[in-house]
Computed example of a mutant assay.
Amino acid sequence: MNRMFKATTAGRSVDEITEGRRLRRMRKADWSRRLVQENRLTVDDLIWPIFLIDGENRREEIAAMPGVFRLSVDLAVREAERAAKLGIPALATFPNVELSLRDQTGSAILDPDNLVNRASRAIKAAVPEIGVITDAALDPFTSHGHDGILRDGIIVNDETVAQIATAAVLQADAGADIIAPSDMMDGRIGAIRDALDAAGFQDVAIMSYATKFASAFYGPYREAIGTKGLLKGDKKTYYIDHANADEAVREAEQDLAEGADMLMVKPGLPYLDIIRRLKDEFAMPTFAYQVSGEYAMIRAAAANGWIDGDKAMLESLVAFKRAGCDGILTYFAPQVAEMLRA
């Protein structure tokens, strides 16, 4: 409390102090609360991550993520059509690749007809108006579950970056509108930008997983893409320590200098402070990924009757907007879109 305020309130009652400045006035009715609401969630804020599997007419529920499914490409196209009707702007696709196609280097990511690229072509052919976001990281394609090429127990940076850049061009050629590399290798954004431009994909954007933290919240996702049990060790040599905020800002600054068009913070709710800092520092389009662990916690607590699931879901998404997000990757996207439309 500053000196001037102390001087003006000395010796006065609460009623005298708050006279003319009762903040509860605008909270008394639904219409007035809506009138002064500072942040709003709309369907335009939503990106829907979906999981892919090979085959036809296949839908597999993911045990750790109730209500979320792995989908064959034909069913993914149907969900893309549904998303477009709901007004969801974009999908982000993640493959669960057969173990027989995985190896130490993740070489299947360089197949122009791999699961990700087939899905992009099919979705863009059927629903050209919806955005398709693809990840150029290697973890769904490696036999060890790491995001890069493993040599003598070390994830090698530059060889991984070269392969990711080549994969990004293949993904763009298949119809991806945005490349969102989640691997956290040094220099990957610049390499991808150069490769896309050289191949004539100057209009394909890059959403950088600029601040991807070494987090405990990724477990259900690893089950979803089939890397649970494959991973030896952890990813702390390339993901950011969850205790470090300044380092996250430096990562984002470097990615923007290399040509990133958008920044992403992952996970979401435990890192609202990072979202706010990036938005304040750079004023760039900023996104959060409400990751599988966050989704699973809300679902599990709701299933046990401990929280109101719908209210908690909406509150969490508005929190991202309040922190400064322009959009949110969330598995709740279709449910939220239907609620907002209703």
Score class of each variant (00 low, 15 high):
residue 154 I to N: 08
residue 135 D to Q: 01
residue 99 L to T: 10
residue 29 A to Y: 14
residue 133 I to V: 12
residue 219 G to W: 09
residue 25 R to V: 15
residue 211 T to Y: 07
residue 241 D to Y: 05
residue 45 D to T: 06
residue 210 A to W: 07
residue 289 Y to Q: 02
residue 15 D to G: 14
residue 215 S to F: 08
residue 295 Y to Q: 05
residue 260 A to Y: 04
residue 147 D to E: 13
residue 226 G to D: 05
residue 335 Q to G: 14
residue 228 K to W: 15
residue 118 R to N: 10
residue 48 W to N: 03
residue 296 A to Q: 07
residue 46 L to I: 03
residue 239 Y to I: 13
residue 179 I to P: 03
residue 332 F to N: 08
residue 115 L to Y: 02
residue 296 A to P: 06
residue 50 I to V: 15
residue 225 I to M: 02
residue 205 A to F: 06
residue 142 T to W: 00
residue 318 V to C: 11
residue 28 K to G: 13
residue 182 S to M: 05
residue 154 I to Q: 11
residue 8 T to A: 12
residue 24 R to K: 12
residue 23 L to H: 13
residue 251 E to Q: 14
residue 81 E to D: 10
residue 81 E to Q: 13
residue 34 R to L: 12
residue 210 A to T: 05
residue 88 I to H: 04
residue 50 I to S: 12
residue 46 L to F: 06
residue 179 I to E: 06
residue 208 S to A: 14
residue 15 D to Q: 15
residue 44 D to M: 09
residue 132 V to H: 02
residue 174 A to W: 04
residue 251 E to F: 13
residue 106 G to I: 00
residue 335 Q to S: 15
residue 4 M to W: 14
residue 334 P to Y: 07
residue 235 K to A: 12
residue 187 G to F: 01
residue 193 R to P: 05
residue 321 K to P: 10
residue 98 E to N: 11
residue 1 M to T: 12
residue 206 I to V: 10
residue 69 F to M: 08
residue 82 R to F: 11
residue 50 I to L: 15
residue 131 G to M: 04
residue 139 D to A: 04
residue 252 A to C: 09
residue 25 R to E: 15
residue 158 D to G: 00
residue 105 T to M: 10
